[in-house]
């Protein structure tokens, strides 16, 4: 295999480029520490629609269209879109695809959807099946909450480990060629290339508590990251930043502990490792318990915060790992444990 190294890692020899990106977030996320990085912040979580599901698909549509525009492209240039969300039968994705009218592939990776869709897009672009591909992921607190947990108005107390599903959507355009750079901007923004993708295995820890999703996903994330290092021969020293998707505050602590067990350079890991679920909100004042979760959590932090920082030259090489808990709405009632998954993507600037 010429484009595969080690057990799980793909090498993208043509180096697909991220030409445009956009993050749309909800009101609560728009009050968090990353607020100035997001492209659009909703004033109202219904987004003027009459159902939460419509609001979510409009968020996704908006983020996709903005990302395309930022890439200097038009809808007709996009050959395929790969998107996903948390809802049954990918409702938000399919309905936003209905409005956009571009060839569509729906992906389900629970909260790992953002790196999953970027990985698949990179394969399509790198394999020269398409020149411009758009990938996106979204989640909405109100749609996910009623599907997976309790109704919004139900009086209950969440345990400290429960995570908060982010109302957010992130989209990125992945292209074969860099867009014509805007010479008027100084300094000229850097191009972001996708170099490697590591497909994760499902790892089940046997945890059954759906309020402990972060902890249930950690082993999958750590496994994917360690496999990535082994396959590529890289170490944490090669990266400026390593971001996991939505392990939350508890999951991040466990992950650091497991990294130490695996013998990684912890001094470096403490500097470069962070988790999107811990970055999106203020822990105390926003009352999010275990931190953020949902597809939109990692999608908005990658597209909103990380890519902008990379374009500005603050980070040059990053490893992004979205993590997903692949439970269904009925599996917990059948006594099944929570299968975790994580996909990693290595990106770097020119």
């Amino acid at each position: 295999m010429k484009n595969k190294i080690g057990k799980q890692t793909f090498v993208f020899r043509n180096k697909p480029v991220i030409t445009g990106e956009c993050a749309v977030v909800g009101t609560k996320e728009g009050q968090g520490p990353l607020k100035e990085y997001f492209d659009t912040i909703l004033e109202d979580d219904t987004y003027g629609e009459n159902t939460w599901e419509k609001a979510e698909s409009r968020m996704m549509e908006n983020s996709i269209m903005t990302a395309i525009r930022k890439a200097g492209l038009e809808k007709k240039n996009i050959e395929v879109m790969l998107t996903g969300d948390l809802l049954n039968q990918l409702m938000s994705s399919s309905f936003s695809a209905r409005d956009i009218g571009v060839p569509f592939i729906g992906l389900y990776g629970a909260c790992s959807t953002m790196t999953l869709s970027m990985l698949m897009s990179s394969i399509i672009v790198d394999g020269e099946f398409a020149e411009n591909v758009v990938c996106a992921a979204s989640s909405h607190y109100c749609t996910a909450e009623r599907q997976f947990r309790m109704p919004l108005e139900h009086g209950n107390q969440k345990p400290p480990s429960a995570q908060w599903t982010a109302t957010a959507s992130g989209a990125a355009v992945i292209s074969k060629n860099p867009c014509k750079s805007n010479e008027t901007l100084i300094p000229i923004p850097k191009e972001i290339f996708i170099t490697h993708g590591t497909v994760g295995k499902i790892i089940d820890t046997g945890m059954k508590d759906s309020n402990q999703m972060g902890a249930a996903m950690v082993p999958a994330a750590v496994d994917t990251i360690l496999n990535h290092f082994e396959d590529t021969g890289r170490t944490p020293d090669d990266y400026d930043i390593i971001l996991t998707g939505d392990l939350g505050y508890i999951g991040k602590e466990i992950a650091l502990d497991l990294f130490a067990d695996a013998g990684l350079n912890m001094k470096k890991m403490h500097l470069c490792y962070d988790d999107c679920g811990t970055m999106l909100y203020y822990r105390e004042s926003e009352d999010v318990h275990g931190g953020g979760s949902g597809c939109g959590c990692s999608a908005s932090v990658f597209t909103g915060y990380l890519f902008k920082k990379m374009r500005a030259g603050i980070f040059n090489r990053a490893l992004i790992v979205s993590t997903g808990a692949m439970l269904s709405t009925i599996s917990p009632f059948q006594g099944e444990s929570i299968p975790g998954i994580a996909h990693a993507i290595a990106i770097e600037t020119s």
């Binding site: 400290p160 480990s161 820890t205 945890m207 508890i250 466990i254 444990s337």
Partner: peptide, 13 residues
């Protein structure tokens, strides 16, 4: 599974 849950609980407030 029990051991991991116990381990995870040590990190949980």
């Amino acid at each position: 599974a029990k051991a991991y849950e116990k381990y995870a609980m040590t990190f949980t407030p």
